[in-house]
Nucleic acid binder design. Structure first.
Length: 704
DNA sequence: GCGGACTCTCTTTTT
DNA sequence: GAGAGTCCGC
């Protein structure tokens, strides 16, 4: 079942264990077996074992595989993401930090809105301090374990950033909300400042195991230190070559220097790759070799040579999408299922042309990530209604729906509501109860029918008792308030999709209620899940679909066939990372490495000569990561054959779509060719100098 | 307060 | 180029 290295790691004794596991080397399998070993051979109590991972997806997979090995739901082993486990702790202890135990989580949209409001109230224009810069900076502080009280002064265009951080935290607390980073930071604050809670948490588990350890940031590191300081039974698994969350504060040093940080640690190496064909591994190794500052290691192939990875150069993003579809059809022909084919891109935006072409050619696809299900307007609205109905709704949720559908409460009215509500000193739900009794002034009068409706539906549900709808009144409230009608009025296609989403939410609530979740637990799940992955799993019959997702989301997954579109300068490596210098580029290279190593049998890389962004046209060069690779490693398909040729290439090999350089205009791409011989003219789109029509004979163009 | 016209800004990646 | 945010006339 396990190879010797895996077995050694799985059956290692107590104390800190570092498992350096290359891509496809059976990492999760080793963790699962180690947990099994702890329980079966050392008699560890399952509920005193904690398994932590980074994404919901890998947490779910771990759970599933534990159930297979140990049976009945993993035998009670506690597992989840850092965020989910932190939330469990906080639901128990958050009052020690001055939060109500029923606090809610703020999502990124509301967080951004809150930040914007703060900046606006202080007359700080976005060109002086961009809201997303402030958010990033605050997150950065939180990842480093800094609260407003101990963050060193930081000025930005004369603005006191620490003060804004403090204001933001106060606003969050006033709204009884935490952001994602707070979940982890606040657990650490509990353990830093409340010895009794620290002790309780420290003795809660006997063993802690962390997957994807290369992606831990300092606050998560401290979190682990607090939790494991007593028993030091910390097993971490990871691969420094797959560290791709530097922008979220992840610090590769935690894994590179694990043995110094945790004295007495034992190192295990898993270097045999069971996933990819040898040719795919050769490409992956050739790419990652260029990175310095990594554990030197060689992934050994255990599978045969297989097919050579391909690289196709395309004209633009639509040509790219069509070529990808052709390749998918070819793979289908030789027997691959759609669900074993994945398209992994650098940026979610790249999915648009792919989706369009897949729809045209009837290739079923599934987008993972992108605009999360729980971030959709209608879902947030519906949940706000539902939370208010279940008395767990807060001010943000009341304000969200107070004029949806239209109740004649505009901007000024909403200000009034807010002022009245905060003057009352009540919770949003208590205040609504007051309105229901008819005590309302000004704009609040317009909310009286809503308030009364809530009271009415609640008592209906109570009377019905066991017969009340499983969705706990979601459908009832959305119909009675006219919210569904307002969706209906939005225009056919749009409203159909939105109503469909609301129905999906309803199903999901029903399932969760049948699993005996409380409304608050359901809201937690929704907040942490963001996307609908878990929901679509529970839906009727699954259509066999091609998966599309970002490279980041693909970490930890594997497919028979993998397409990596947009392997270009500006996209992979991404433009934003180019500005960060060498470390940014190294992380981008790891992203490509992660992408390639997802594949078992086939890899196709594509790049485009022309790509549109924000309505602007770009002429990217092929990515530096693959440009210099030899043809034995990466087979480049002849680009010219796929171009609809209106004219023959010149003797120099210049053709439509060729990348060229001009002595004074610089680099560009050939848009068209006319005439022949000495009379030949070309139209060139230069990267910097615009479009020019040139006599080929005199232009001294060079292919690049 | 509302709706239409206009301007402006983006998302690189996730919990 | 789309979606959000802003301004203006009704």
């Amino acid at each position: 079942m396990l190879n010797p290295a895996q077995r050694q790691a799985a059956e290692a004794g107590d104390g800190p264990q570092l498992i350096l596991a290359g891509a496809g080397s059976g990492k999760t399998r080793t963790i699962v077996y180690r947990i099994g070993h702890l329980i079966a051979a050392t008699g560890a109590a399952p509920h005193r074992i904690l398994a932590v991972s980074f994404t919901n997806k890998s947490a779910a997979e771990l759970k599933e595989r534990l159930s297979l090995l140990i049976g009945d739901n993993g035998g009670g082993v506690v597992s989840g993401t850092f965020h989910a486990i932190s939330l469990r702790f906080l639901r128990r202890y958050a009052d020690a930090l001055g939060y109500p135990l029923a606090f809610q989580i703020i999502d990124s949209d509301d967080q951004k809105a809150l930040i914007k409001r703060i900046l606006k109230a202080r007359n700080i224009a976005s060109d002086r301090l961009h809201p997303s810069y402030l958010i990033n900076w605050i997150e950065h502080c939180k990842h480093a374990g800094l609260t407003p009280e101990n963050t060193p002064e930081h000025g930005w265009n004369g603005i006191n950033m620490v003060e804004l951080y403090a204001i933001y935290q106060n606003e969050l607390k006033r709204h009884e909300r935490m952001d994602f980073s707070d979940l982890i930071l606040n657990v650490v604050l509990l353990m830093r400042h409340h010895p009794d809670i620290a002790t309780a948490l420290r003795v809660r588990f006997d063993h802690v195991l962390v997957d994807e350890y290369q992606d831990t940031n300092p606050i998560q590191h401290e979190w682990l230190i607090h939790l494991c300081s007593e028993h030091k039974n910390l097993t971490v698994v990871g691969d420094d070559d797959q560290s791709i969350y530097g922008w979220r504060g992840a610090d590769v040093r935690h894994i590179l220097e694990f043995e110094q940080l945790w004295s007495g640690a034992t190192l295990h190496r898993l270097q045999e790759n069971y996933r990819s064909s040898a040719n795919i591994l050769t490409l992956a190794n050739a790419v990652i070799r260029e990175n310095s500052d990594r554990h030197e290691k060689t992934l050994k192939a255990t599978k045969g040579a297989g097919e050579k990875p391909d690289w196709k150069v395309c004209n633009d993003e639509y040509d790219e999408a069509r070529k990808i579809v052709q390749q998918i059809e070819e793979w289908q022909r030789i027997g691959y299922k759609n669900s074993e084919i994945a398209i992994l891109y650098r940026s979610n935006r790249q999915s648009l042309p792919l989706e369009q072409v897949c729809r045209e050619t009837n290739i079923p696809y599934r987008i993972i990530g992108g605009v999360g299900f729980f971030e959709r307007m209608e879902i947030k609205d519906a949940l706000a209604y539902w939370a208010l109905l279940n008395r767990s709704g807060d001010t943000l949720q009341l304000m969200r729906i107070c004029n949806k559908p239209k109740r004649g409460i505009g901007n000024i009215g909403q200000q009034q509501l807010l002022a009245q509500l905060s003057a009352s000193g009540m919770q949003a739900c208590e205040w609504l109860d007051l309105l229901a009794s008819g005590q309302a002034e000004g704009a609040a009068k317009k909310l009286v029918p809503l308030a009364q409706l809530l009271v009415e539906i609640r008592s209906e549900l109570e009377t019905l008792g066991d017969h009340s709808p499983v969705d706990r009144g979601l459908n009832r409230i959305l119909e009675a308030t006219g919210y569904l009608d307002s969706l209906n009025a939005m225009g056919e296609i749009e409203s159909a999709a939105r109503i469909d989403n609301v129905r999906t939410l309803q199903d999901y609530i029903e399932i969760s209620m049948l699993q005996d979740l409380t409304p608050i637990e359901f809201m937690d799940r929704a907040a942490l899940l963001q996307s609908s992955e878990a929901i679509s799993d529970s839906e009727e019959e699954e259509v066999d679909s091609v998966c599309m997702m970002s490279l980041h989301r693909a970490k930890g997954l594997e497919f028979d066939c993998v397409v990596l579109p947009g392997v270009e300068e500006g996209l992979l490596p991404h433009q934003r990372s180019l500005d960060e210098g060498e470390s940014g580029i190294a992380e981008e290279r790891r992203l490509l490495y992660v992408g390639i190593t997802r594949a078992r049998d086939h890899v196709l890389l594509t790049s485009a000569r022309l790509r549109r962004f924000y309505g602007e046209t770009h002429y990217p060069l092929p990515s530096r990561f693959i440009k210099k690779l030899s043809l034995d490693i990466l087979h480049q398909q002849d680009a010219a054959t796929s171009v609809p040729v209106q004219s023959t290439p010149t003797e120099g090999g210049i053709n439509i779509g060729s990348n060229i350089a001009h002595p004074s205009f610089g680099e560009g791409v050939i848009l068209s060719l006319e005439g022949a011989g000495d009379a030949a003219r070309v139209t060139v789109q230069f990267r910097r100098s615009g479009t020019k029509r040139l006599m080929l004979k005199y232009a001294a163009l060079q292919l690049v």
